[in-house]
Design a protein around this nucleic acid. Structure first.
Length: 286
DNA sequence: GAGAGGTTGCGTCATAGTCT
DNA sequence: AGACTATGACGCAACCTCTC
């Protein structure tokens, strides 16, 4: 994935390897990430002595990556900056259109991470609404319930065998009639009936008429209109699903990167603790 | 080489949430 | 209230890797 944001860290310094990505996964084939760690120095144009950088976790963005309220602002020392951008990404920079990125690895430089606690974005990743939604259990679909009851074939038989309908409508195998149909049927002045049909991508209102024999049929123009609407809906949903998967992948990737950064931080802190302990012991024995 | 099992991406459906 | 959107769930197909 291009343009993925990495968080600042205090790790051992080299590129963050992603421990969660399996070998051969897209993580390894993606373009090299921009890794911002404590020993990577990034160059800022002279006109801009400092820059505001937001964490990968953003508030109030229409994104899978969210936080409640705490934007992380980091004032970087002169000469250090992190500019990360990816248009249309779930990850946004302050301006959203930053493109420049220049990295100068300098083993001896240390980027201050003061005031940036990586954790404070991690604990508030989700809005309350989202959390609430995730707590909800989904109502099983009629299809699933039928499958569980071993009655899928019953459903299959019901599909597309509404008396008379098959003469005028080519029903797809996934079209099923909700149990509420009889109660929901409305007859209008024009002789058209309206009923709710499920299984056509979120449900639909279908109009039909009856002939002298009491058989159902869908008048041509209405059928065309319904078909067109369905195709449009499917097209839109197809694209929405694609976008949704893209965001999901990006989100997972982001979490994986975060794991890597935190692991590095953890490692560094353990090392620091160790050396401080040694120092303390030395001074104590002197 | 065949086939079993895992992975990945896609299209569709169902549905909660949002918008108008 | 109805239309629209986002996303979890499901089934399917293509591809890959292992094992025999």
């Amino acid at each position: 994935m291009d343009g993925m944001v990495e968080e600042n860290g205090t790790g051992s310094g080299t590129n963050v390897s992603d421990p969660l990505s399996s070998p051969g996964s897209s993580a390894n084939t993606a373009p090299p990430h921009v890794v911002v760690t404590s020993i990577v120095q990034l160059t800022l144009p002279a006109q801009a002595p400092s820059a505001q950088v937001q964490s990968v976790i953003q508030p109030n963005q229409q994104s899978v990556i969210q936080t409640a309220s705490n934007i992380q602002s980091v004032q970087l020392p002169k000469g250090n900056v992190i500019l990360v951008s990816k248009p249309n990404s779930v990850i946004h920079t302050t301006q959203g259109t930053l493109q420049t990125l220049q990295i100068k690895p300098e083993p001896n430089s240390v980027v201050s991470t003061q005031g940036q606690s990586s954790d404070d974005s991690g604990s508030d990743d989700e809005s309350p609404k989202r959390k609430y939604r995730e707590m909800l259990t989904r109502r099983p679909s009629y299809r699933k319930i039928l499958n569980d009851l071993g009655g899928a074939e019953i459903a299959e038989n019901r599909m597309g065998t509404k008396p008379g309908l098959e003469n005028e409508v080519s029903l797809s195998s996934s079209l099923s009639f909700a149990p509420v149909i009889p109660a929901g049927t409305i007859q209008t002045d024009s002789g058209l009936h309206t009923l709710a049909v499920s299984g056509t991508g979120g449900g639909a209102i279908v109009q039909y008429a009856t002939n002298q024999d009491g058989q159902f049929y869908v008048p041509g123009p209405i059928l065309e209109d319904q078909t067109r609407k369905r195709e449009l809906r499917l097209l839109k949903n197809r694209e929405a699903a694609r976008e949704c998967r893209r965001k999901k992948k990006e989100y997972i990737k982001c979490l994986e990167n975060r794991v890597a950064v935190l692991e590095n931080q953890n490692k560094a802190l353990i090392e620091e603790l160790k050396s401080l302990k040694e120092l303390y012991c030395q001074q104590k024995t002197e």
